Simulated assay, not measured.
Amino acid sequence: MVAVIHHSNRIDKMLNYNEHKVGEGIAKCLEAAHYPKDLAGLNFYQKMAGLDKLRSLSTRKINSVHISLNFDPSEKLSAEKLKAIAADYMEKIGFKDQPYLLYEHYDSGHPHVHIVTTNIRADGSAIELHNIGSVQSEIARKAIEIAFGLVKAQDSERQEKQRVKPVNVQQALYGKTETKRAISGVLNYVLSAYKFASLPELNAVLKCYNIVADRGDKESRMYRNNGLVYSMLDKQGNKVGVPIKASDFHIQPTLKFLSKKYAANEAARLSKKTHIKNTVDLALLKSISIDKLIESLKKDGIDAILRKSLDGIIYGITYVDHKEKVVFNGSDLGKNYSAKAIQERCALPLLKQPNLLELKLDLATILLDTQEPSEALPFELKQQKKKKRKRLQQ
């Protein structure tokens, strides 16, 4: 099981996102836990009111929480089991007795549920959210995997199965709703899983999934207003379909949102530098061209993405490590991993290993040679040999 937690002050967007999925027939509301009425008797406004009542008791800006619990594709979980898992998880992360809405979604290749709730208690106090994902949620996840017999998140085979696939552009080119749904699935995965520290680094990952985050031209109004849209890319890397504003997605991956992630990711990814550097160094031992280097790195789960000028000159390189889920601009790893250094290192000829048979023949020739030393013999060695002969004659 994998748990992903988002929090904000826009519970209306969280609720709208899930209810919209229900309206499209690709989700179902399974439960309204700790509500005064049963789920069947609640309409949209009553669902919202149940959470707004608590949110109004506090002036805190962060008062809404959206959680997704993701399971292995092989797991077939009944509605009752999903409700039991959600209840256990909420209690273990400190949300016992908090009202929440539980939705099962059917729009992905693996079973998953979404939970909409608030971190404001009935007495107006707030449940602390700092490190909740890395501490309480991790403890809860591991306990629940054992208690319910779920596939463990550490299972590498499961991680590979659940890895989000690149957007199928042809299937998504039927209007804004389909485009938004396709991009949203990738964003939810990439923004929570990968550690990047700039927009170009984020785009290095997104382009692996046929998506790009675009600020527009520097002279454009969108750029001046710090706007951001997400678009799909075709096989040639051209933007296609309807661009979607960052603020239209339920997690709102705007520039402001991303800038906060940059700062947090910068420190979190430092320990992963060595893995990429070592992999590049090893690949260069057997690579004699940039193309072969890229091919070798890809086999080890690293995409080396080249940045080129209009006339084809390579001026930058970004490494996307899909195993460690980190992204680094080449120069951030050190001088030896920048685009310029990599081109120079690829241009160096590999040392030719001596042929063992030729080596034996050369050695035999030297040993059997009875002639006087050749003129190629160093002058100093010739002199030493002559001196020895004179001493013997005396």
Rank of each mutant, 00 (worst) to 15 (best):
D332T: 14
K388D: 15
Q159R: 15
G50Q: 05
L202A: 08
A339Y: 00
K207F: 07
E75H: 09
N265G: 09
P111D: 04
K76A: 10
G241Q: 06
N203A: 15
D38A: 09
P243T: 04
K382S: 11
F95K: 01
G237T: 09
S156Q: 10
L57V: 10
D362N: 08
M90T: 04
L361D: 12
K340P: 01
S296D: 13
V212P: 01
R121G: 06
L310G: 05
N119P: 02
K47R: 15
L368A: 07
N225W: 12
I317H: 01
H7Y: 13
N119K: 07
Y89N: 06
A213S: 06
Q343E: 14
E19F: 10
G241D: 04
S198R: 11
Q136A: 14
G227D: 00
I305P: 02
R215D: 00
H250V: 12
V186F: 04
Q46L: 15
E145I: 13
D155R: 13
K385D: 08
T117L: 09
G237F: 06
V205R: 03
S374H: 11
L51A: 08
S137K: 02
N131Y: 15
T254E: 05
D52E: 14
L191P: 01
E91I: 03
K292M: 13
N18R: 04
N278S: 07
S220F: 00
L129G: 10
G216M: 00
K385I: 12
I62N: 15
D300R: 15
I115K: 04
Y223P: 00
Y17A: 03
D97H: 13
F257P: 01
A153C: 09
S125T: 14
A267T: 06
A364R: 03
S331D: 08
K76Y: 06
D123N: 13
A283E: 04
L51G: 06
L69Y: 01
Q171S: 13
Y315L: 04
S287W: 11
S309G: 05
L15T: 03
S289R: 11
E128T: 11
A182C: 08
K387F: 14
Q343P: 02
M14R: 02
G241C: 05
V113E: 00
I313G: 04
V240M: 08
E75A: 03
Y103W: 03
D234T: 11
R221T: 11
R269F: 01
A376C: 05
P349H: 14
K387P: 02
A87L: 09
I93D: 01
R389N: 13
Y35F: 15
I146V: 14
A140I: 10
L285N: 11
D321Q: 02
K352D: 06
D362H: 05
P36K: 03
K308W: 07
R389F: 14
E80H: 11
P99E: 01
A341E: 10
L282V: 14
I317D: 00
K235C: 07
R269K: 15
S220A: 07
E219F: 07
A213V: 04
V240N: 05
D155M: 09
N18I: 03
Q353F: 12
L150I: 12
A32I: 08
A140Q: 11
S184K: 15
K142F: 03
V190E: 01
